Simulated assay, not measured.
Amino acid sequence: MDILSKIKEKAKANRCRIVLPEGGDARIIKASRSIVDQSIADITIIGGLEALKKEFSDMADRVDIMDPDSDDRIGAYIDDFYEMRKHKGVTRDDAKKLLLENSVYIAAMMARRGEADGFVAGASYTTRNVARAAIQCIGVDKEMGVVSGAFIMALPDKKFGDDGIFIFADCAIVPDPNARQLSSIAISAADLLKCLLSIEPRLAMLSYSTKGSGAGDSVDKVREATESVKALRPDILIDGEFQVDAAIDPGVCGIKAPDSPLKGRANILIFPNLDSGNIACKLTQRLAGAKAIGPVLQGLKKPASDLSRGCDSEDVVNTVSVIAAMA
């Protein structure tokens, strides 16, 4: 059974409700039909009532359609958001305008209130909009302290990672994490891999240096983050700092870092900044033919995920499967 099949089976067993707030997008509609047909999750889709009723006329009893302009549930979400944010100067009119014009906030409020187990958005919303809604409505896990974006990467070449599986982080949220943030990103990624696939995490903290071959502030940051993870979570196998070839190739690791417990078999790659993480993810996807799922938003109180605006319907199905499996 491949990775996606395993994740989908876990999602089906959880039988969660996931909100898709971009119901006007053809990719979301197509994905919703597939999700329901495969029984991956129960779906609430947000958009124009008449258009969506027509799209789902053959499965009306299996899809929850919410039109922000007419649904009776919206008032409670507006009231709750106002109460949450009034200390920031938000008025009820502000809250109403924000939610009615940005359905991703409705999705996030449903998750906050326990009416849904998570949400997936980003086909049209930017990562910034999706992350802001998640942080403001769902909230940050105090233990983690930072929200980050992780991609599950499935490579056709099975000799790398764990049968071709990697997690890349952070590829979406924190532009230049400090050592504390980097250690939290690493811990979140380790927990994500174990939760989703029951695979023991093997983390490499990446740099332009391998075990002292280079020097600089960035190298020092990665070393400090590595030691922090070791102290906070001694159960996690982690090493660094590493150039990526030493992290994933046993032959190169044997030359550059022969004493490393990773032995060139990392299945989680933690990048020193957002530039490197985002570039690496897209290069691996385009040049190596990898399937990239996410970015899953780590460090929240409930599961949520962004999407690439270049996603297709299959990407949406896969990402919903991950969020449902996490719930």
Rank of each mutant, 00 (worst) to 15 (best):
K6H: 11
K8M: 14
K12Q: 14
C16Q: 05
P21C: 05
A26W: 02
R33F: 09
D37N: 13
Q38W: 06
D42N: 14
D42F: 13
I46L: 14
K54P: 01
F56G: 00
D61S: 13
D61A: 07
R62M: 05
D64S: 13
I65S: 00
I65Y: 00
D67T: 12
D71M: 02
D71E: 03
R85F: 11
R85N: 11
G89K: 11
T91Y: 11
T91R: 09
D93S: 11
K96Y: 08
K97S: 14
L98M: 15
L98V: 11
L100Y: 06
Y105Q: 01
G114A: 11
E115Y: 10
D117P: 00
S124E: 15
N129D: 15
V130L: 08
R132E: 14
I138Q: 00
G139D: 13
K142C: 07
M144L: 12
V147N: 04
M153G: 02
F166M: 13
F166S: 09
I167D: 04
F168K: 01
C171L: 10
P175H: 05
P177R: 06
N178T: 10
N178S: 10
N178Q: 10
R180A: 13
R180H: 12
Q181S: 04
L182K: 03
S183L: 09
S184L: 04
K194C: 06
L196W: 09
L197E: 08
L197A: 14
I199S: 08
M205G: 05
T210N: 04
K211F: 07
G216D: 08
T226G: 04
E227R: 06
K230M: 13
R233F: 11
I236Y: 07
L237S: 04
G240I: 03
F242M: 14
V244T: 07
D245M: 10
A246M: 08
I248D: 02
D249G: 01
I255M: 12
I268K: 05
L269R: 02
N273G: 12
S276E: 12
S276F: 06
G277E: 03
G277K: 00
N278I: 07
I279E: 12
C281G: 06
V296L: 03
G299D: 03
L300W: 03
K302I: 03
P303W: 05
D306F: 01
D306H: 05
D306Q: 07
D312I: 11
D312H: 06
S313P: 08
D315Y: 02
V316M: 06
T319D: 07
V322P: 01
V322C: 12
V322Y: 01
A325L: 06
M326W: 03
A327N: 12
